[in-house]
Write a protein that binds this DNA or RNA. Structure first.
Length: 828
DNA sequence: CGTAGGCATGGAG
DNA sequence: ACTCCATGCCTAC
């Protein structure tokens, strides 16, 4: 692309790159607009720019004829005119139609960008005559058309409209407000060459309120922008007046028959009121025709009314966007859809952009940097510095931020709707979230937040909720990038697979055996039940057992490892131990054991029911040889500890993923010191036992005792654990390894499982509670997948929290789209 | 070394 | 083939 000159004398930009595409030309090309002034171009022969005042170029929506001004350019250029064609100068019939009713699009009309959802939007060429108030009645329009001829109609109407606007400030402001986005829309910029720039500016400055927080482009004031796109103007006004009563005002032909997309079909509870959420048409025609439906605001009428009431202003929804992980991430950059940015934000010429003030639904003002990056000969618009706002709104990836405008005044308003669990939000344009889940139906922040349950949302929600994945969703998931960031879903899936294995048939259910590829499967007519949460433990003797808690007395009972318990289980159900089948019987497990148990178990299982990094440590310590297998799933998972966030410096989060990173032998980090200390303990134990063993052997040389067997087994475990600890994450043994001081431990530094130097932990270890104490994840109560279980003491969790809080590393809820935990966002 | 800024890349439409 | 945009990656600080 060679260097081009802007034809706007006030601009005269010469550049080879800073041009943007304007409307598409039927010739196959695009009108080229100057990025600097947005007004002119040099290589498009589209006549409207240069002959705008003389041009009557329009496409009649009724007869489909193209008319032109007669200039050479207009004779051979066929242009999508998305104005709606105020009048067809070759077919005056439509002018006699009064009022214009929504008209089904003639099939022979050329489809253009105004085609939406298969139904061509029909713009009111002539709207209802409002009597004396309407100086642009059909009659008048027709009269003007005849009186002044085609070439002058537009300019005359423009003049009248402007005068009208000046006289009626309020209405004018509404007009302006509604016109502004149109004017700044790249595809519909109607450069005003024939009009002095200053005049335009003055006109609009006189109308714009001081509170107008974003600059009006010179093009915004283009007189051509004030052309009687009657439907458009009236729509805006009417929208404000009618609170966007979709489909109720039949005269609002712009109230297009909204496709009932799945998104639109979702419901939002608002008190007792349930309202369909429609893909609301943007505030202006251009926006609608240009913006992808995914960006269409979907605020409900009630929400809009409430929002308008809260802000005591007329709110014009502009667009919305589902927050991506990047948007919600710590970088604080919210990528704005290009069309939206160019339609609703002030034009910017420099990459650095401009600061822009946007208020939220609570009235709080935020200043963002609205800027762009050159990108593939185009632009990528971003709002920078959104993190505080995002945090304040407590939204995260998958939630929706909305942009609206207060009329009059044009103040931009940012709002949000939190994703909810309905899986039916997706339409053909919807986005799959980075976690592979669909964006969920939403509640409008500040509007319906208080009306909707604000209970904790977990990442499991979207999984456990019935979320029928459409083919489109599945197709979308093919997105490699999304798959790469689908770790959460993957982890969940695995967890669910594990859970699947331990779904128990209903006690009364009788299976039907079916053969599938020579494999027998049991089919049950009744739905499965979830077993009671139990804790598997193993004594040092190797004997395994599980602990279950009575639902009545809360006492823990030792049960055989094979015992399958229903979700509701009490002591009376203890058929394995007649002495402990009553709540009156003493607890099987001492409080000390329980404490140690939970200390370990809380390492093993996070509140969300996902294995933690400490689980990996414990498991590795036990499995030893299988460390390679654990590597990817466990060690990798440690860097994605569900309760932690980027920046968390706890022992779990600071571990590098498997195979990544290597600590120096002299490293004194928490991980290294802990590993070294642990290893040292193991070695000490080993030595001690070895000496004991030798002493024992001296006494009983030929009689292998149970104690001996257990001792050997324990020793073997220690070896394995020691090797595992040595190998884990390439941490290396240092004979002079630091020992974590008690003080450090008290500061909340996370210990691995337990501190062998602490008396209670040593006792716990010696009390037959080995590292093999693992939570039976699969028998977690069903609601564990729904929300954080509150019934389990969480010493470890509190330690983690303390640690995070102490180091100030915890990010506010909703900061990260990738690793954040919605639970935390609820102030967990 | 960690972070932020800016641009590049590549998948999806 | 092209645009958009989510996000990766490089570089400067």
């Amino acid at each position: 692309m060679g260097s081009k000159n802007c034809m706007n004398e006030a601009c005269r930009t010469t550049t080879s790159s800073e041009w943007k595409k304007g409307w598409s030309l039927k010739s196959g090309g695009f009108a080229t607009l100057c990025y600097n002034c947005g007004l002119s171009y040099d290589n498009s022969v589209f006549c409207e720019t240069f002959h705008f005042k003389e041009s009557g170029w329009r496409e009649c929506r009724l007869c489909g004829k193209i008319i032109h001004c007669g200039c050479a350019a207009s004779r051979y250029q066929y242009e999508y005119m998305d104005f709606g064609g105020i009048s067809c100068l070759s077919c005056a019939k439509h002018l006699e139609i009064q009022p214009v009713q929504p008209v089904q699009t003639p099939g022979d009309l050329p489809s253009g960008p105004f085609m939406t959802n298969g139904v061509k939007d029909v713009y009111p060429l002539v709207t209802e005559n409002k009597g004396n108030d309407d100086k642009f009645s059909n009659e008048r329009l027709l009269h003007l058309t005849k009186a002044v001829g085609a070439n002058d109609v537009i300019s005359k109407l423009e003049q009248l409209r402007r005068e009208e606007s000046m006289l009626k400030t309020v209405d004018a402001q509404k007009c302006i407000s509604n016109l502004r986005p149109q004017c700044s829309s790249s595809s519909f910029l109607k450069p005003d060459i024939g009009r002095p720039k200053q005049e335009v500016k003055d006109t609009f400055e006189s109308l714009a309120q001081q509170s107008l927080n974003f600059a009006l482009a010179t093009s915004l004031g283009s007189s051509s922008s004030v052309l009687p796109f009657r439907g458009e103007i009236i729509e805006g006004v009417e929208q404000s007046k009618s609170s966007f009563q979709h489909g109720k005002n039949t005269k609002q032909t712009l109230s297009k028959p909204v496709k009932h997309s799945p998104a639109a079909g979702s419901e939002t509870n608002k008190g007792n009121i349930t309202q369909k959420r429609f893909a609301r048409t943007p505030a202006d025609v251009r926006g609608r025709t240009q913006l992808l439906p995914r960006y269409w605001p979907k605020i409900t009428d009630q929400e809009l009314q409430q929002l308008s009431g809260d802000l005591k202003s007329s709110i014009v929804p502009l667009f919305e966007k589902i927050l991506s992980a990047s948007d919600a991430g710590r970088i604080g950059r919210l990528v704005l859809p290009k069309a939206c940015a160019e339609a609703y934000f002030p034009p910017i010429n420099q990459s650095e952009g401009i600061p822009i003030r946007i208020q939220d639904i609570k009235g709080k003002h935020w200043t963002f940097q609205f800027r762009f990056w050159p990108n593939n000969n185009s632009r990528m618009y971003v709002l920078e510095g959104v993190t505080p706002c995002i945090q304040n709104m407590q939204v995260q990836a998958g939630d929706i931020v909305t942009f609206s405008r207060i009329d009059p005044g044009g103040q931009l308003v940012i709002g949000c709707r939190k994703a909810t669990n309905n899986g039916d939000v997706l339409d053909s344009h919807a986005t799959i979230l980075p976690n592979g889940n669909s964006p969920r139906e939403t509640s409008y922040s500040g509007v319906t937040d208080t009306l909707l349950p604000t209970g904790g949302r977990t990442s499991d929600d979207s999984m456990q909720q019935s979320n029928p994945m459409s083919e489109k969703k599945l197709r979308n998931i093919k997105n490699k990038r999304l798959l790469m960031h689908n770790d959460d879903a993957l982890e969940l899936r695995i967890t669910w697979e594990e859970a699947q294995e331990l779904l128990r048939p209903s006690p009364s259910a009788k299976p039907t055996i079916v053969l599938v590829e020579d494999l027998e499967f049991e089919e049950f007519d009744e739905p499965p039940i979830f077993g009671k949460r139990t804790i598997f433990t193993s004594r040092l003797s190797g004997e395994q057992e599980q602990l279950a808690q009575c639902d009545i007395c809360s006492k823990w009972r030792r049960l055989p490892v094979h015992a399958l318990l229903s979700a509701k289980w009490t002591c009376s159900d203890n058929i394995w131990d007649s002495n402990r089948c009553s709540c009156s019987a003493a607890e099987d497990v001492s409080p000390r054991d329980l404490e140690a148990l939970f200390t370990c178990n809380n390492d093993n299982v996070s509140k969300e029911g996902e294995p933690s990094g400490l689980d990996a440590l414990a498991t590795i310590a036990v499995l030893g040889d299988n460390i390679g297998d654990m590597g990817e799933s466990s060690a990798g998972a440690t860097t994605r500890h569900p309760r932690h966030r980027p920046g968390c410096s706890c022992i779990v989060c600071i571990q590098p993923p498997s195979g990544k990173g290597k600590h120096e032998p002299t490293c004194k980090c928490n991980v290294c010191s802990t590993v070294k200390r642990r290893f040292k303990t193991l070695m000490m134990r080993k030595k001690k036992r070895q000496s004991e063993r030798e002493a024992e052997l001296a006494h009983e040389k030929d009689k292998p005792t149970l104690a001996k067997i257990c001792f050997e087994k324990e020793e073997e475990e220690d070896d394995i654990a020691g090797n595992a600890l040595l190998n884990m994450n390439h941490h290396q043994e240092n004979e002079d390894g630091n020992r974590m001081s008690t003080e450090e431990a008290k500061k909340g530094r996370l210990d691995l499982n337990c501190d062998p130097y602490r008396e209670e932990d040593v006792i716990a270890e010696e009390n037959e509670m080995s590292l093999t104490t693992l939570m039976n994840v699969a028998t977690l109560p069903f609601d564990m997948f729904l929300e954080k279980p509150n019934d389990v003491p969480s010493l470890e969790a509190s330690m983690i929290e303390d640690n995070i809080a102490g180091e100030g590393a915890m990010l506010l809820p909703g900061v990260s789209g990738q690793e954040n935990n919605p639970e935390d966002g609820q102030g967990a």
